[in-house]
Design a protein around this nucleic acid. Structure first.
Lengths: 194, 194
DNA sequence: TTTGATTCGGAGGATTATACTCCGTTTATG
DNA sequence: CATAAACGGAGTATAATCCTCCGAATCAAA
């Protein structure tokens, strides 16, 4: 595969995620090509139909976020930190955005990634619950759904930067809870490293 | 205004919200009329253009949720309860759904409703903070944005009923926080009255 | 019940938006 | 430098959506 072809292919994937976020749904193929600065034919050469494009975008986002999550397991200072870092990074990898056009959940594709994702999430949850860091009645699906929800664009008429910032703040609040009490609040993301 | 005309008008508003939620954006006018079981001309008679329809839908949702919120101020057992009840009811009134197609925030329309909404939210927040029920660093915008976020459809491939149920559960978690500690968790919605 | 004004329905034409192909030109790489 | 690979974008086909029009149906006042 020629170098420029590979570059274009990856760029198309990135641009597609951007556009999904802006449009709030499936962007037109013309718009994707225009935004990427390539001819429409180039898009068709790499992705003969819309489905294959979304498929590739989804797989890419999933791979990235799983890899990042696995890294969190070894890098984090404790099990709670691992959980929160994972959620923030999954948002940055566009899991919520991609899920607007591709059903990541309830999808039979990629049994390999599925298994990795499930084992990763189970480990993260079990560690945090075993350490008594999070409530025992939380379920893995709560984490999955929350990550998707917080990663989605919030409102029309909001800049992308604002949207991302609000997403991370809300995730912090979600992690910390609204009610004041003697338990510490989670350290806000902006004051943590990374 | 003839009785059947009024009926149709209101039904069109309801159906539009349903469709926004299902489509995840502006539904086509043909689809709205078809779902409502009326001719396309009836839709045009009541709402000459798309904007006037969305305008009416948005105003309706806003009025409902403000009225419900004002009721919460007097009905609730304490200031924290008022806050959480308001948020749950705003979701049910479709604030998050409507916001997908109409910029409720940053909109110059309806200064009257705007003032009522602001004063309502200020009161709810101030009461809860004055009573020490919620963290002092929360802002009104956190409540507004959170209500919108939790009210939006979560994922494609999810039934409406499931979606709503997940939304309320997530809102409960948001209110309670993930971290376990000595502070009580908020009482889950399913175990509260109403 | 009659009567007339109001409201309704949906076929159909105009207008876009989007999908997709084709082939001459350009670019990478041995 | 040669040539296989990749590119660009004009242009057509297709489909979705918008919107108007007018005869039929419905409501409500007398």
């Amino acid at each position: 595969m020629r170098a420029d072809a590979r570059r274009n292919r990856e760029h198309l994937l990135d641009v597609t995620v951007e556009l999904i976020l802006e449009v709030g749904g499936e962007p037109s193929r013309d718009a994707i090509a225009a935004r990427a600065g390539v001819g429409i034919a180039t898009l068709y050469r790499h992705f003969p139909d819309q489905q294959s494009l979304l498929h590739a975008v989804a797989r890419h986002a999933l791979e990235q976020s799983i890899a990042a999550g696995e890294a969190c397991l070894v890098n984090s200072v404790d099990s709670f930190d691992a959980l929160t870092r994972y959620m923030h990074s999954a948002i940055d990898h566009g899991i919520g955005v991609v899920n607007m056009v591709y059903p990541l959940l309830a999808n039979p594709d990629w049994p390999d990634l599925r298994a990795r994702a499930e084992s990763l999430l189970d480990t993260i949850m079990n560690n945090a619950q075993a350490d008594g860091k999070i409530h025992v009645d939380l379920e893995v699906s709560d984490i999955v759904f929350a990550t998707i929800r917080f990663g989605r664009p919030l409102a029309i008429g909001l800049s992308l930067a604002d949207d991302r910032a609000i997403a991370h703040r809300h995730l912090d609040l979600y992690i910390a809870g609204l009610r004041s009490g003697t338990a510490d609040r989670a350290q806000p993301r902006s004051k943590r490293g990374s």
